[in-house]
Design a protein around this nucleic acid. Structure first.
Length: 590
DNA sequence: GCCGTTTTCGGCCCGACTGTTTTCAGTCG
């Protein structure tokens, strides 16, 4: 069945092709429809497949014409009109528009003038100096294309949080050292700690914006200079696009709120403001009740550039003031996805979110006994140095998914037990003996029960057959009396494979009944379970374990990614096994 | 092509930046 994403992609291609052929307004309608189809909570293809003309009526921006095209696609696998457009403009639209500065209209013009259809042809034309000969193009545009075409070829993927976060910290530290910078914060999806990041957004408060832009473009780590004006600039650093915006200190709070997003959260807040005769934007919250024509619901066209700041400004110097003006408490960035957080805030029901300092231990680590880099003693010392009160040693067991002799056999596991106990006797922190066993395709565990019984803690993780529905298999594992934690339940690898489909509600309710925790693997390539699954799991009553899967002591630092992902899943400290005391954890796993 | 307390026509979000212009179009967020 066709996913909403696929249908939305088709509508967007439609929009781009219309745009490239110079059609007005229709492209916007198709893009809006695409956006709403993508975000629609039910399967649009299912609705379209119904023998009901009005089935698609509820989707904003989808009218008669677009609805009939969606139905045509679901029934026949094609849209005749789209095929005609493709024939008229046979270009690799997605590839070509992935070049920074090249949009649909440019694609249309270059096809018209030079017959360019692919990235390779675009590059060849630029190298041959043909592009600057086209009317409306010049030498700079041609050079920009040459500069960006390679990046466009390799890009197309969002950056992992674990790569973007250190990048963000570096730029923030640098800007904080710049003269005239009053405040500096990361914004955008990085501040919301999304698992993947489009670009790094950084916001500065300063009365000398041009000096800040200047310092930013001269940053040592800025490899490519994309653009720079008087109040904003963009560079590429280590392959990541970094966008700077500078505002005056009085507007820092409103700008931070605006640029943190998400878009959906901000739209919902803006509507709430309108209900109160207020206007909310990146410059503040304004009382427009005394403005002319209040009944029209929109400000008058004065023609001045200050329309955005019309009315009496009642908030904006801090983020708190923005929310307060709408009678809401401040909402943590991780929750700002329009997933019910505004309603919860209104009712005083916002979760008391877990913090990094609440976590007391790590229940999933590896040593040289399997594929880790360090000894049991070094990993335990690393956990203690990180500040943990307890740590579990859970090396890979041999079995399905373990290749190249990585996992330990049952006999080796028993040998390792003695070493772990010896180390444990020498240190202050609590050390749990354990294993990361493999869950086979049927839900079986790769270590004999008698051996599992000897261990304090058993993490059971899927490492093979990581596609299709994994619910029953994981349910079987979660019911196993010796299994305490289901490790990285879906087996996903961000940007590489989606992992198992899991009915989280069902898995979580079984896990809750059998005293099994579900892992949030903090490795930034995994972040598994992900935010929405975490929330579903907690709602179904399951306990969460946030573990780093550390293969060396430095990996204990990855905990932050797991904690913030759990915050995105509305997790409170009590939901998380490894915020509990040593005695309580012992109680849970015994 | 969509939409409506402006309701069957006439609008459609908008500001910053760049590169090409000689007053503006295209891209981006």
């Amino acid at each position: 069945m066709t996913s909403n994403d696929q249908l939305a992609d088709l509508l967007e291609e439609f929009a781009d092709l219309l745009d490239a052929t110079g059609v007005e307004y229709k492209p916007r309608a198709y893009r809006r429809a695409a956006e709403n189809v993508r975000a629609y909570p039910e399967s649009v293809a299912d609705l379209a497949a119904r023998d009901d003309e009005d089935a698609l009526d509820d989707i904003e921006g989808v009218g008669e014409a677009i609805a009939s095209k969606l139905i045509e696609y679901v029934e026949t696998g094609e849209i005749a009109e789209l095929d005609e457009l493709r024939a008229e403009l046979p270009v690799d639209m997605a590839g070509l528009t992935s070049v920074e500065g090249v949009g649909p209209k440019t694609v249309g013009k270059l096809y018209e003038a030079l017959g360019i259809t692919t990235l390779d042809e675009l590059e060849a034309a630029a190298e041959a100096g043909e592009i600057q000969e086209v009317k409306g193009f010049g030498a700079k545009t041609e050079q920009n294309i040459l500069d960006n075409v390679d990046f466009a070829r390799q890009a197309g993927e969002r950056e992992l949080l674990g790569d973007a976060y250190p990048q963000g910290q570096r730029v923030r530290e640098y800007l904080q050292s710049v003269d005239g910078v009053v405040e500096c914060e990361l914004a955008g999806s990085l501040r919301r700690w999304r698992a993947t990041i489009g670009d790094v957004d950084v916001l500065v408060a300063s009365d000398a914006p041009e000096d800040v832009v200047d310092a930013f473009t001269n940053w040592d780590d800025a490899d490519v200079h994309i653009e720079a004006g008087t109040s904003k600039a963009s560079v590429r650093s280590d392959g990541v696009r970094v966008d700077l915006r500078v505002v005056v200190p009085e507007e820092f709070g409103s700008a931070l709120q605006y640029f943190t997003g998400s878009k959906d959260h901000n739209v919902a807040l803006r509507n709430r403001a309108l209900d109160r005769d207020l206007k909310m934007n990146e410059y503040g919250v304004f009382d427009v009740s005394s403005e002319a024509e209040p009944a029209s619901g929109r400000p008058t066209e004065s023609g001045s550039g200050d329309d955005q700041r019309a009315g009496e400004r009642i908030a904006g110097d801090t983020e708190e003031s923005m929310y307060d003006a709408l009678d809401l408490p401040w909402i943590p960035p991780e929750l700002r996805e329009d997933r019910g957080e505004i309603e919860a805030a209104e009712n005083g029901d916002l979760p008391d979110l877990l913090g990094l300092a609440d976590v007391r231990g790590d229940l999933h680590t590896h040593t040289v006994w399997s594929d880790g880099n360090d000894s049991v003693a070094d990993m335990v010392a690393g956990a203690a140095a990180f500040g943990h009160e307890y740590v579990a040693i859970t090396d890979h067991a041999t079995g399905p998914g373990m290749v190249g002799g990585v996992g330990v056999s049952d006999d080796e596991l028993l040998d390792q037990l003695e070493e772990v106990r010896d180390v444990a006797a020498e240190v202050e922190i609590e050390v749990f003996t354990g294993v990361e066993a493999n869950v086979d395709a049927e839900g079986g565990i790769s270590v004999r029960d008698e051996v599992l019984e000897e261990l304090d803690l058993v993490v059971a993780s899927p490492h093979v057959a990581l596609d299709g529905d994994g619910t029953e298999r994981l349910v079987t594992a979660a019911k196993h009396p010796e299994v305490n934690v289901i490790g990285h339940p879906t087996g996903r690898y961000l940007n590489r494979r989606p992992g198992l489909d899991v009915d989280v509600e069902r898995l979580a309710s079984v896990a809750a009944d059998h005293g099994t925790a579900l892992e949030v693997n903090a490795n930034p390539a995994r972040l598994d379970l992900g935010d929405e699954a975490i929330r579903a799991a907690i709602d179904a009553g399951a306990t969460i374990a946030i573990d780093t899967d550390a293969h060396r002591p430095a990996n204990f630092e990855l905990l932050r990614y797991g904690v913030h992902t759990a915050r995105r899943g509305w997790a409170e400290p009590s939901d998380v096994l490894n915020t509990w005391s040593t005695a309580d954890v012992r109680g849970f796993i015994s």
